[in-house]
Nucleic acid binder design. Sequence first.
DNA 1: CATGAATGAGTCTTCATTCAT
DNA 2: AATGAATGAAGACTCATTCAT
Lengths: 226, 226, 226, 226
Amino acid sequence: MNEPLKPLKPPKQARTSRAEAKAERRQQLIDATIDSISRFGLTGTTMGKVTDLAGVSLGLANFHFESKDRLFEAVLQHLAAEQRVLWRSRSQDPRQTSRDLLLAIVDSRFDAAICARKKLAVWFAFYGDASARDIYRRAVGDVDDERLEATVAILTEMIAEAGYTHLDPDEAALGIEALYDGLWLNMLLYPSDFRRNICRSRALNVIAALLPRHFDTTPAAAENAD
Amino acid sequence: MNEPLKPLKPPKQARTSRAEAKAERRQQLIDATIDSISRFGLTGTTMGKVTDLAGVSLGLANFHFESKDRLFEAVLQHLAAEQRVLWRSRSQDPRQTSRDLLLAIVDSRFDAAICARKKLAVWFAFYGDASARDIYRRAVGDVDDERLEATVAILTEMIAEAGYTHLDPDEAALGIEALYDGLWLNMLLYPSDFRRNICRSRALNVIAALLPRHFDTTPAAAENAD
Amino acid sequence: MNEPLKPLKPPKQARTSRAEAKAERRQQLIDATIDSISRFGLTGTTMGKVTDLAGVSLGLANFHFESKDRLFEAVLQHLAAEQRVLWRSRSQDPRQTSRDLLLAIVDSRFDAAICARKKLAVWFAFYGDASARDIYRRAVGDVDDERLEATVAILTEMIAEAGYTHLDPDEAALGIEALYDGLWLNMLLYPSDFRRNICRSRALNVIAALLPRHFDTTPAAAENAD
Amino acid sequence: MNEPLKPLKPPKQARTSRAEAKAERRQQLIDATIDSISRFGLTGTTMGKVTDLAGVSLGLANFHFESKDRLFEAVLQHLAAEQRVLWRSRSQDPRQTSRDLLLAIVDSRFDAAICARKKLAVWFAFYGDASARDIYRRAVGDVDDERLEATVAILTEMIAEAGYTHLDPDEAALGIEALYDGLWLNMLLYPSDFRRNICRSRALNVIAALLPRHFDTTPAAAENAD
DNA sequence: CATGAATGAGTCTTCATTCAT
DNA sequence: AATGAATGAAGACTCATTCAT
């Protein structure tokens, strides 16, 4: 418990410009914060631990971020942006079908870099803390909405294509998004039982049950879609 | 911000025996803790706030529970027991079909008393806090397992009844349980958009898609099952 | 650390009169206090620990003794009285020489029951605590003075008998009494290195050096005097 | 009783380097702790009183020393080091006889700076507190041993020089060291009756009785040796 | 830019004492 | 007599934030 925290990375490297050095410091602190939250929780994350992990002095965190809350906000924005960029980069091709676009969302949701255990811990730390929930909504509410709307649009198209009558795209989108969250929670709470790839195919299984005409419904096929 | 916290209940009532009075005090403190966690988060919940809300002196919390952690543990055990009792009481009748038994789980998961916003906040507070996760597992891991196993057993029976070949009961059970959790998260984060009944039927929609022979697949029918 | 404290003695025994039962309870609490101080120090001795060790309820200590300080005072008085009674009982015989009387003091100072480690711990606990020093002086100052005066009287006689000219009885008495205390401290701090009998003969060695005509000065002889 | 504690020294002085300022602060806190223990005992010494006496903020004590126990350890180390340095500085000269060397020990034991009442109180506070005894042994056990061994060596030489046959150097060393402790206790408990110089010569009287060939045995001579 | 000493409010926990039963 | 629930003041320690260097 009292062992000193080891910095995540070697102290310094060859710098380039002034602005880049500054951005580097910020990122260093954000990474350290993610690390700390995942290890000690939001409660247990102190400016001291963050700066220790980042290998910088205590004062520096308050210099780059105005306060602890601002630092937390930056962390969430970083994570949301990371996920958004990945998703967008996989949804660029105009030749993609609606099925491709839905898979792009699933794949970015269950990408190895995205749902690293550290990062899941951060998300749920903010969900779980009443006072941090405001930070959450302020920082990533828009990104959440954007992705949900995209899912609705995709499902609307798929439902039209398949001619389903019993499926409401809004309803289905909300159900699917909720499913992702639930699976993320499983990965966080029981990481050894719930590996990333298994959860991804589990999500696809449910999606396949909802949209049988677009997805082969045999488990084997779902695995292949990986 | 500094306004004094009002006690949840009138200070005292007609007492009975000494032991009952003690149990009453314990419950009073547990209720106050739930209230505090939902309002201020795990981070923001202090012994002082809890005892203020309970309308008792600061020292009493440490007298009845040995420490803050033990108090938290008691809170989780209370919540888990409450849900388990409700579920069990709805699964008593030997004439219930497997469909009935599955509905009993859904109904207790989305029961008004169970998913009161306060209580959802408590669950996710513990999910989200790294150090509280141990408390969570210690306090309710068994109950979680029990319910999951029951779901697997029910689904195994339903799959056999319906003759599905593409559905694995373990997989489906994990998916469904994850869905509940995800919907709970929605209720917590966006309570005005995600009302309890809507989430319940949203869960049933997905279940119906997975098990079409047991559940009518039209949304209207799902609503009726309420 | 958290193991429950076991009561020193079986809870109750056949009572006799009312007054005796009361005295018994008091002694029970005094013994428990000695035990607690020796194990946890004055700082670490709480009314709760004392009553746990005594196997009685918390309220009882405040019933028999008015406060913690009064309890402590009673403890010191008990210890001082015990030692005084032993010394007096060994100084009864009118045929005793001055040498015998001095030995009676040494023997009661290094009696097994008197310098049980527990009790040494209590003495030094009170010496060492600034605020407890008043309690100490109030409780046993008189007994200390009485024994010192007796020593001075004995030494005065011995010096006269031996015809020493270089020895002041007051000085010598103070030196000898200080020596006892120093040896007691050794027994307390390093109990395995400083056994009671060794310390007793060590005291006698110094006394023998001061009063060679009354005490054989060979170590072997000192041992024999035991 | 509630009068505010006055800082021991004027708040600030001309500073030098950063590191020196830090060491100064540490010493300031150690001095304040000695003051507090002597006035209020170990029990009555709180971090708040210490920092008040030092004229610094509460948090600073935990910044410089990790905890109350560490602070106490530092205090003992300081006192032990102070005494050791004094003794060593008086034992430097190679021309010193064994008698000189023994006097150097006595003189540092009864030096005005060393047995200031404040400091005596600290020593006995640690002797008397069961839980503090570990701190004591850890902090100064080695220094105690070193001085005892030196005394044994000196006595061995003196006994050889004088050709005593009845005196064991180990025994005599332990007796003499115990005597110092007992005299210290007198100075602590009854400061008005037991002044430092009187105790010093009282110690020398006993030493003279043990080693008559090295020390003149008349009281007057002993006083002269001051 | 960067450091880290310093502050002081806030939190958990302990504990002597009281008092209704 | 005896119990033990209840009180509330007090203490150790933490930590976000500031600021002189």
